[in-house]
Design a binder for these strands. Structure first.
Lengths: 222, 222
DNA sequence: TAGATTGTTAATCGATTAACAATC
DNA sequence: TAGATTGTTAATCGATTAACAATC
């Protein structure tokens, strides 16, 4: 089995964790660390050392007994797996607070993912540069996407505009979408779609907080 | 088995979906719809009808054959499961773009989750009201949390401040944290913690986009 | 009635963890 | 050497899906 076949078979969860490992490793590297043990990575990520080792086994990386994993090598390997060698260009759809937060958040951090354009219906924003990113009208989406070779869109428009935006993006030839709106998107199945829903996350926290309050009350009463 | 025991046993994924079902149902209700079929809910959420029915089975709700589920009843039941009857108060830690986006995003939508305070180290923000939310100094966190009965914190501070913030929050007696920073948090295990990491999500999309590009190229070559 | 739908069990799939051999 | 660590298989756990009975 060649490398690409191996990569194609990686579990979804392993992909997520590889991205997280890399970030942790980059921080360790900055601190001048050269080697890291599986249990150290595990501790940072709140998972078990076995899981780290299993993930690394799946990507075919071997550590050194008693020394652990070479941080630099591992970063390079993960980058080879996750990143596109040429890099990929990203557009932000909706340049409100959230869109701007994402630009700020992301821009220096990921050399292989470059935000090259923003889109907004606000006439005051169109034609200007916001946090260093040129802002275009959604009417020009098809041309801009082609021109700037954009393959990923991060959508932060208001909820009721979600599927109108989806249609435009698909029509413009985008390949992957990260949807921050609370409305689930409808796209053809060849489009990579990730729903990223903060309301659900917050409600989940609220639910478990409620449970912990109830448990506490039950204990007091017993 | 009483209701509370039943609720405590719900799978994590079911909790997430219940939150999503409720949002979809609220929209349907606004449109004047009274009943909904499992396959309709499924379509909105990109899941199967069986899964919807199974989730509803787990929460003990029965629909009507050939009519489907009563939207209003179902919304009420989900709310009973997820929400705290008294509601819960939320604080935003870090009033930058992301913090403000979350305030705007959330504030009217969730009657049982109320953002009552923001915290920021910026002297210019402290003492002012931002998007209707009063902003405090992190130094006053303990008092404010107690005073305003805040049980959940949404953290949007810079990455290197994550664990300093975590310590303050735990010390202030917060019960649940939604962490938007890319650094995994360290908290005692009685604290409800949800990591919400946009870089991982974006890198995941990028990975699968890369895979779809590679597949396409392989097809062309064959 | 036939067809559409709900409700539920059993089977399958995917992810995590336990157990342990290998070895520096 | 003993102990710590990696690497891997098998077992377990949790979530989804297939199959189908019930019924309007």
């Amino acid at each position: 089995m060649n490398t690409q076949e191996l990569i194609a078979k990686l579990p979804h969860k392993t992909i997520e964790r590889l991205s997280q490992y890399r970030r942790a490793l980059l921080i360790c590297q900055e601190k001048g660390k050269e080697y890291i043990f599986s249990h150290e990575i595990a501790e940072i990520q709140h998972i078990t050392a076995v899981q780290v080792r299993r993930d690394l086994m799946l990507v075919g990386y071997s550590g050194t007994l008693r020394k652990g994993y070479n941080i630099k090598e591992l970063i390079n390997l993960i980058s080879e797996i996750i990143d596109c060698p040429r890099g990929l260009n990203v557009a932000i759809i909706g340049m409100g607070n959230l869109g701007r937060a994402i630009i700020k958040y992301l821009n220096k951090r990921r050399p292989r993912l470059t935000i090259v354009a923003g889109f907004d219906i606000d006439e005051k924003k169109i034609g200007k540069s916001i946090k260093g990113i040129p802002c275009y009208s959604p009417d020009d989406m098809k041309e801009v996407v082609k021109e700037l070779d954009i393959s990923i869109a991060v959508v932060t428009v208001p909820a009721h505009k979600t599927n109108e935006t989806a249609k435009r993006l698909v029509n413009a030839g985008i390949r992957g979408i990260l949807n921050f709106t609370p409305t689930p998107m409808i796209v053809p199945e060849n489009i990579v779609l990730e729903e990223y829903d903060m309301i659900t996350s917050l409600e989940k926290v609220a639910f478990y907080v409620k449970q912990s309050i109830l448990e506490e009350e039950a204990e007091v009463n017993s």
